[in-house]
Deep mutational scan, measured.
Amino acid sequence: KLPPGWEKRMFANGTVYYFNHITNASQFERPSG
């Protein structure tokens, strides 16, 4: 399970990334916590 605010998303080319809808942060590494 991801930390609060984070969700797993995917680009059109299939690349997975993680987006935080609270802070609008995005990253390729899975957030810890």
Rank of each mutant, 00 (worst) to 15 (best):
K1F: 13
K1G: 14
K1R: 13
K1P: 15
K1L: 14
L2F: 04
L2Q: 02
L2P: 11
L2K: 06
P3H: 04
P3R: 03
P3I: 04
P4N: 10
P4W: 14
P4F: 14
G5H: 11
G5M: 06
W6F: 01
W6M: 00
W6R: 00
W6H: 00
E7N: 05
E7K: 05
E7S: 09
E7H: 08
K8E: 14
R9A: 05
M10I: 12
M10P: 02
M10S: 10
M10Y: 14
M10E: 11
F11S: 15
F11R: 10
F11L: 15
A12N: 09
N13P: 02
N13F: 03
N13R: 03
G14M: 04
T15L: 12
T15A: 10
T15I: 12
T15G: 08
T15D: 11
V16L: 07
Y17F: 08
Y17W: 08
Y17I: 07
Y17K: 03
Y17E: 04
Y18N: 00
Y18I: 01
Y18L: 00
Y18S: 00
Y18P: 00
Y18A: 00
Y18E: 00
F19D: 00
F19H: 07
N20D: 04
N20F: 03
H21D: 05
I22M: 10
I22G: 06
I22F: 13
I22L: 12
T23R: 04
T23H: 04
T23E: 05
T23K: 04
T23Q: 05
N24W: 06
N24K: 13
N24D: 06
N24M: 13
N24R: 10
A25H: 12
A25Y: 08
A25N: 09
S26R: 12
S26A: 12
S26F: 15
Q27D: 02
Q27S: 10
F28N: 08
F28E: 08
F28S: 09
F28Q: 08
E29F: 08
E29K: 06
R30M: 11
R30K: 10
R30V: 12
P31N: 01
S32D: 12
S32I: 13
S32V: 13
G33H: 13
G33R: 10
